[in-house]
Computed example of a mutant assay.
Amino acid sequence: MVAGAAVTALVAAGAISYAVAEDHGGGSGAGSVLRVPAADSADAGFARDMAVHHQQAVEMSYIVRDRTRDPEVRRLAYDIAQTQANQRGMLLGWLDLWGLPKVSADPPMTWMGMGDAPAGKDGALMPGMATNAELRELGRLSGRKAEIDYLRLMTAHHRGGVHMAEGCAARCSVGVERRLAQGMVQAQRSEIQLMADMLKKRGAAIS
């Protein structure tokens, strides 16, 4: 079991390395060179910031999974948690491949020209992110109230994520990362509509 997991991790790491190398025009030959983005580039900034953004979405999804028995909400939460955990692994893997730090002294979203924006409060580091108080409240609710709270929080979270992903789609130079960002925009817009329908079914507005 452990050996199988290790092999899977190595294969995934190899796939990340190959995809990025190929995207930069590198190959498997001895003379191939990986062109690494700068630490302050949009590519690095997006990878760092979206990894943090995604981690909170995973956290919220696991919270609501334990606060409701509704299969529709639990299925959505599972899908979001799995998708964003996998994407987070790719983003952090690229930073490792590039030899770049996962943490920056610059404020979040500086790469988007938003470094001078007012800092988030109570743990909300970037647009759309929930505050610590909102996460605690979600953990206290149950049933329909938890479902509605989660759907509202995740709608706001996705909107912030779409904004950031659009920034990478316009600014990132690494093609495979830019394509990932474009895929995020499409998928999260679709989920925003799905969550609006789910809220309506529960007799609740988005906010």
Rank of each mutant, 00 (worst) to 15 (best):
L100Y: 11
A117I: 07
D122H: 03
P101H: 08
L151K: 10
L151V: 10
W111I: 06
L151A: 03
A105Q: 15
G113E: 11
A133N: 01
L151D: 09
R144V: 14
A130L: 04
R144I: 07
P118C: 05
G113Q: 11
I148F: 04
A119K: 11
D122F: 11
A119T: 07
A133L: 00
S104P: 08
A117C: 07
E137N: 04
R140S: 12
G128V: 01
L135C: 06
A133M: 00
G99A: 08
W111G: 00
A105V: 14
R140A: 14
S142P: 05
L100F: 14
R140M: 13
G115F: 00
R140C: 12
M126Q: 12
S142G: 13
G143V: 01
E137V: 07
R140Y: 07
T131C: 06
G120V: 09
K121V: 13
T110P: 05
A124C: 11
K121I: 12
G113D: 12
D116L: 12
G115W: 03
T131S: 13
E134R: 01
G113T: 02
K121P: 01
G115K: 04
R140K: 15
A124T: 05
R144E: 14
D106V: 10
E147T: 06
G115A: 05
T131L: 02
A124H: 05
K102S: 14
D122Q: 11
A119P: 10
P127W: 01
Y150S: 06
K102Y: 03
G120K: 04
Y150P: 02
Y150R: 08
A105K: 15
P118I: 02
D106S: 14
D116G: 06
M109T: 00
G139S: 10
P108N: 03
D122I: 08
P118N: 07
D122M: 09
L100G: 10
N132Q: 13
L100E: 13
M129T: 07
M129E: 01
L135Y: 02
G120S: 10
M114Y: 06
S142C: 01
W111N: 03
A146I: 03
E147L: 05
G99D: 11
L125M: 15
D106I: 02
M126P: 00
R136G: 09
P127H: 01
M114F: 04
A105E: 15
S142M: 07
G99T: 12
W98C: 01
P127N: 05
Y150I: 02
A124Y: 02
K121A: 13
G99L: 08
L125A: 14
G123T: 07
A117D: 13
L151H: 06
R136L: 11
L138W: 03
L141V: 09
L138T: 06
R144H: 15
D149I: 06
D149N: 15
M109Q: 09
E147S: 06
M112Q: 05
G115N: 02
V103C: 04
S142F: 07
K145C: 06
A146D: 06
A146P: 09
D116A: 14
L125H: 15
K102A: 15
Y150E: 06
G120D: 09
R140I: 07
L100N: 13
L138D: 07
P118T: 02
G128T: 08
M114V: 10
